[in-house]
Nucleic acid binder design. Structure first.
Lengths: 196, 196
DNA sequence: ACATAAAATGAACCGGCCTCACCTTAGGAG
DNA sequence: CTCCTAAGGTGAGGCCGGTTCATTTTATGT
């Protein structure tokens, strides 16, 4: 069995290996940000200055590489809620985070498709990203609920799904729409519905 | 140039051609509903009892076939608003339509992916489907706004995008979530926000 | 029945992702 | 410093799916 790709702190990678792995991630990220959403593996390898085989030594599959790039993006994003809650009230923090989400999805407008292709799989690698994100949203929602500003019964997981659609958007003017949709959802959250 | 695939009432298709075209659409629909979302062209052709070449005589590409199947589904759905408005008040009609949308997306839970793969392209074939759908939603929104139940400034196109995400859902328990999300959006629509 | 254009066929092609038998090299031991 | 060896790298080729097109079959008007 080839050693699990999760660098489960088994053995510290050899120097050149670590360098190449990083180069591949960078090359992929750059390609995506540049809009070349479905860059071929050959192309990514070439950009990183390695052969395809090397790509496959580090990532089980093309998808896995894409997933890793996205996982890192998500990690960045997950740091935001704590900061926002420190600087703003719960409601405003939530609003700003939602908008940040849109902005993030916008990066080069290539990440959107990548994200979508990832959402389509249910690899465990990905569950982590999702649950991290859901947890980040939970932080905001809990604060909001405690302050009586957000209806109870909505958790991060649900909200994440509600917003999932905006990331796949590609059509002209999508960003404008995405912002208005988050406003819509945000208002929905605050509305103390009388529905059973 | 091979004659445009839009049967622009130029010449009525030969009898066997019409039969095969129909068989292909049926085969594709069945495959999707059965959950075999990415059925190979060979498989679809086989189910329809024709060769691949025939598939390509009728549809420019695999995508085009998928698009046509979906277009027909949408047409069905677009008939609903008029009926619902006749039977219920504007607000209730809107709510029911949103739920119907979810139910429809549920059909065999294969249509979701197909839809997603279609949303990803911006072929004109598809603009029609989208604008028909948006128009159907407009009917409901206009009625709601007139009755003072829905905030102004939201049109069908925007709402359609807001809901786009639910169709891609595949994870366990998605349908439950989808219903709650439509409730969320529905409440958001009714909330008369004070935002500028 | 015949002519002919429309339609059907399916083997071959092409462009992606991925594999694997072989070569190269980092980096520790002596 | 040199040698050894396991980790790492290589890239031609396999595979698989969508698409093409020269050839064959067939519906339909005369």
């Amino acid at each position: 069995m080839p050693p699990s790709r999760q660098p489960s702190q088994a053995r510290p990678l050899r120097a050149d290996a670590r360098r190449n792995r990083e180069a591949l991630l960078t090359a992929a990220r750059e390609a995506f940000l540049a809009g070349d959403t479905d860059a071929h593996v050959e192309e990514i390898a070439r950009r990183a200055g390695v052969a395809v085989g090397t790509l496959y030594r580090h990532f089980d599959t093309r998808e896995a590489l894409v997933a890793e790039v996205y996982r890192q993006e998500v990690a960045d994003l997950c740091a935001a809620p704590a900061r926002l809650l420190a600087e703003h009230g719960p409601d405003e923090a939530l609003r700003r985070f939602l908008l940040l989400l849109v902005e993030h999805a916008a990066v080069g407008r290539g990440m959107g498709e990548a994200l979508e292709s990832i959402m389509a799989t249910d690899s465990p690698v990905f569950d982590d990203a999702r649950s991290d994100m859901a947890h980040a949203l939970d932080t905001l929602l809990t604060a909001g609920t405690a302050a009586g500003l957000v209806r109870p019964g909505v958790d991060g997981r649900l909200l994440l799904r509600a917003l999932g659609g905006i990331c796949g958007m590609r059509a002209h003017g999508w960003q404008q729409d995405a912002i208005r949709i988050t406003e819509l959802v945000h208002d929905g959250l605050r509305h103390t519905a009388s529905r059973t």
